[in-house]
Write a protein that binds this DNA or RNA. Sequence first.
DNA 1: TTGTATGCGTTATCAA
DNA 2: TTGATAACGCATACAA
Lengths: 342, 342
Amino acid sequence: VRSVTLHDVAQRCRVSIATVSAVVNRAAWVPDATRERVQRVVDHMGYRPNQLARTLKTRRGYAIGVVVSDLTNPFFTEIVRTLSNQLRADGRAVFLCDSDHDYAHGARNAAMLLDDAQIGGLVIIGDTVPEDVLAQRLRRRTGIPVVAIERDYQLDGVNCLLADSEGGAYEATRHLIALGRRRVALVGGPVQGPGSATFGRAQRHAGYLRALAEAGLPHDARLIAEGNFRSAGGYAAMQRLLHAGPHPDAVFAANDLMAIGALVALREAGLRAPDDVALIGCDDIPIAAQTSPPLSTIAMPMRELGEAAAAALQERLQGRRLPAPRCRRFATRLVARASTGS
Amino acid sequence: VRSVTLHDVAQRCRVSIATVSAVVNRAAWVPDATRERVQRVVDHMGYRPNQLARTLKTRRGYAIGVVVSDLTNPFFTEIVRTLSNQLRADGRAVFLCDSDHDYAHGARNAAMLLDDAQIGGLVIIGDTVPEDVLAQRLRRRTGIPVVAIERDYQLDGVNCLLADSEGGAYEATRHLIALGRRRVALVGGPVQGPGSATFGRAQRHAGYLRALAEAGLPHDARLIAEGNFRSAGGYAAMQRLLHAGPHPDAVFAANDLMAIGALVALREAGLRAPDDVALIGCDDIPIAAQTSPPLSTIAMPMRELGEAAAAALQERLQGRRLPAPRCRRFATRLVARASTGS
DNA sequence: TTGTATGCGTTATCAA
DNA sequence: TTGATAACGCATACAA
């Protein structure tokens, strides 16, 4: 059961395969008469160009590869969804790869996509593809558009889309302080290993410190706990915070997943939010609005990021060389819910 | 910047490309001497076979395609993760496509994977690829292994992996009744449209009815509300249930996402679980254990499903024709937490 | 034991 | 305005 090839169509039309190819690729020189005649047969026979052969020949893939750090984090899936819907609307295939918090997996995913599948463009979401690996792969396949979300690669040819996490963390912490809280803790991202190179990780730490300093609050190391951007990490970090001395009266968690874990730890310790401990997260993933109490958070511009990534990619694929500034920054926004009080 | 080809290696070794190809593909007839010599050069030059060319020639893709109904549902992502980790361990590339609750997207995804990317195997998770579309695509690419999870395709060449949702729903409902509840409601999946063809959808409805009948409880239409397997649908369904008359004293939601939505609706209505309404979900996604109160649920065998899918695929790719029975059923398990009482 | 040659389905360069 | 034809990188039947 072979599929229809250029050859079949050509034979049926009594033209050469070159002509059919020209019609399919909308070459300008084909006269309208033959164009129509051929096109009709193409439609009738249900001819579809073999993308493998096409890519083999042109070295320009038609599909877009997406590498994502953690598919179980709604922050990422939300971005992935808007991104791929947009790309699909642009008529592109999207191949997604999950790295499951692992640099090795991220590296393999990038290599598979770039070397094996020979994709036409790449989107990297999160920090799971090491910079040197990316640089090396890009050296082989030069000129291929790459867009990174929430990671600041110092590579030219790659566009970086970043959220203003520093500002968000600053606002979050200020919000807690304005509520009258004085022992404001941070459940941060991992200081090393997977997740640590996410752009927002250091930014959120910095924003937290800036707000504290501005309010003249002392810097207390016992108020800072390290998580891993996952729920279990937030849970463990909160427990450590509670056992480290007099418990904090407010917590800024560097993402919502950790905030949810922290919420569980608080509940188990018999503490209530916001009465005993005011809690604010970061990302504004859908479940944040459905926890009990609903979680205050810093909304990350997930849809904007996804759409901007698709747009940047499409723009560069259309041929234009320079894609605006190398890095673009997107605003965040405070969302106050019950977990920080009414 | 060309990459290394068979030709380059052959030239360097002073052998023909056929020999190098044989070494790379581990042909039996190559003498150990040359094999080693060639292999050394292969490694040294960093040769990697061009998968596109290889697939174009052999018509057997190396990658596995995965189509998933809803990437924002942790039930699916959990399966996807174990599946792709397993496949990666088997040395296969995995390309994932999200259909976002849309038959058209599902159809396009399957077509892209099968026709364009010419994958070597396909896994379909959920109900988003219409049966006729799949049948048609499979007719062109015959012999390609396909595994479906939670959807019962009546196609040969397709392995179906199904969970015992009927039994699970039955247990869930019985659990509620055993708690002394008499007005036991169902928040079900969508009766038509995307989601409706999921194997578990009808099964859960049936299990619920069986338990009611067995307990001699009357069948009351006002106790059944239709959701869409998403949180918002569960929320709306619960609201309808509450407005339809005297509120139910127990609810079985056909998945955890809807149960979480229902929980929010209950809270907003000033009702408490389990005191006023006992609530049980289905799936046992990670957040189910972290809601307030923690959600009782029917655990679906997500890891087993993912691993079995990888195993079935691998088995069929290794050449064995018949892959055990066409359909395999996996057990579910009741997990009692606070939302149904202590 | 090894090399030659053909073709997979395209695109692209020429010549007609 | 068209049609041969040579790659693209690889696998493989067949000749040596």
